[in-house]
Design a protein around this nucleic acid. Structure first.
Ligand SMILES: [Mn+2]
Ligand SMILES: [Mn+2]
Ligand SMILES: [Zn+2]
Ligand SMILES: [Zn+2]
Lengths: 150, 150
DNA sequence: AATGATATTGATAATCATTTTCAATAACAT
DNA sequence: ATGTTATTGAAAATGATTATCAATATCATT
C-alpha cells in the first residue's frame, strides 16, 4: 500500500488525514473505473464496515476541490468520479453508454482537439465576455454488452 | 399565433393536440432562452392558470422524443430545454455559466469541429465497438453578470 | 352533433441522488 | 496527555423528476 503519498498534501490545508479519506483514495487508485458515490460506498462497505454514505459524498466533494479527482455528471442526475493521475493520459475525454452508464476514456486526436478548443475558447471569451474555466467533450452511445442485451 | 404548424405532426402518432402542448410549444418558440421545467411552468402559470408541473415534465419528454426539442443536462441534476428550429443555426454547442446556469449558443468553428467529431467518432466506433449516437461539446465559465456580482 | 374508447391531465405520493443538521468522536498541534 | 475543532454517521431535509390514479378532454366514428 503506497498510499501515503496523499497524506502530506493534507498538511497545512486544515484538513485531517482520516480513515475514510485514505480508503476512498486507495479504492479509486486501484481501479480504472469511473465510479458513483453509491458504488464507492458499496465497495468500501466490505473493507470498511460502518462507513457512511454521507461521508463518501463529503469526501468526494473535498477531494474534487483539492484537485485529486474529476467529477463527471451523467445527465441522469448521477455523478461519477475518477482519480486524476499525475502520470500519462491526464487529458482525456469520455465515451458514455446511455444504457448502463459505463464510461470509457479516450485520447484520440487530443492534439487537434486541444488546438480547436483553444481557438474556440479564445473566440468565446471575447465575444461573450465569459470567464471560461473548463470544457467538456463527450460521445454517447451503446456499449458492446448493452448492444447484445437486446 | 402561427402556432398550428405543429398540430399536424401530432396526427397519426396517437398523440393528441392539447392546450398544454400548444402552450409549451408557443412559449418555447417565442424565446431564445434555454429553460428548465420549472421555469417553463412558472412562465405558463400566468397565461395558463391551473397547468400542472407534472404535465410540463411529461410534455417536455414527449416533445423531446418527437424530435421537437433538445434536453440539456446541467450537471446539477437540472435539465434545460430548447426548441429545435428547422431554420439556420441548427447545429450548435453551449457555453454554460456555472454560477447561474445561463446557457449561450455558439457556432464558432463548427466546420472544423464537425470534421474532428467525425474522425473521432469513426475511430472510437472501431476501437471500442460502441454504437455512437450523439456527441456533446460545451464550455463552462462565469458569465458577465455573475462576474460583477462578486 | 352525440357517443365512446382512450389519451391526457393535475393532485398527490413516491423515487433517487445529494445536502443539511447535529451530537458523538477522532485527529493532531501544543 | 490535553484541548480545540475537523470529521463522522444517522436521520431528516431538499430538489428534481417520476409513478399512481381518478377525473377529464380529445377525436375517430357513428
Ligand atoms: Mn476518465
Ligand atoms: Mn442551444
Ligand atoms: Zn452499456
Ligand atoms: Zn451567470
Amino acid at each position: 500500500m503506497p498510499s501515503h503519498k496523499w497524506r502530506k498534501r493534507f498538511r497545512g490545508s486544515g484538513s485531517r488525514w482520516t480513515a475514510p479519506r485514505e480508503a476512498i483514495l486507495n479504492l479509486l487508485s486501484k481501479t480504472s473505473k469511473h465510479m458513483s458515490a453509491k458504488e464507492i460506498y458499496q465497495a468500501l462497505l466490505r473493507i470498511y464496515p460502518g462507513i457512511g454514505l454521507t461521508t463518501v459524498y463529503r469526501t468526494l466533494d473535498l477531494l474534487e476541490k483539492m484537485g485529486f479527482l474529476n467529477k463527471i455528471p451523467l445527465g441522469s442526475g448521477e455523478n461519477k468520479y475518477e482519480l486524476i493521475t499525475e502520470s500519462d493520459q491526464t487529458h482525456h475525454h469520455h465515451l458514455i453508454c446511455t444504457q448502463c452508464g459505463k464510461i470509457i476514456d479516450y485520447t484520440d486526436f487530443v492534439d487537434e482537439e486541444l488546438e480547436l478548443i483553444k481557438k474556440t475558447e479564445k473566440s468565446l471569451k471575447q465575444r461573450h465576455r465569459f470567464q471560461i474555466t473548463d470544457h467538456n467533450i463527450e460521445f454517447y452511445g451503446v456499449c458492446e454488452q448493452c448492444q447484445k442485451r437486446r
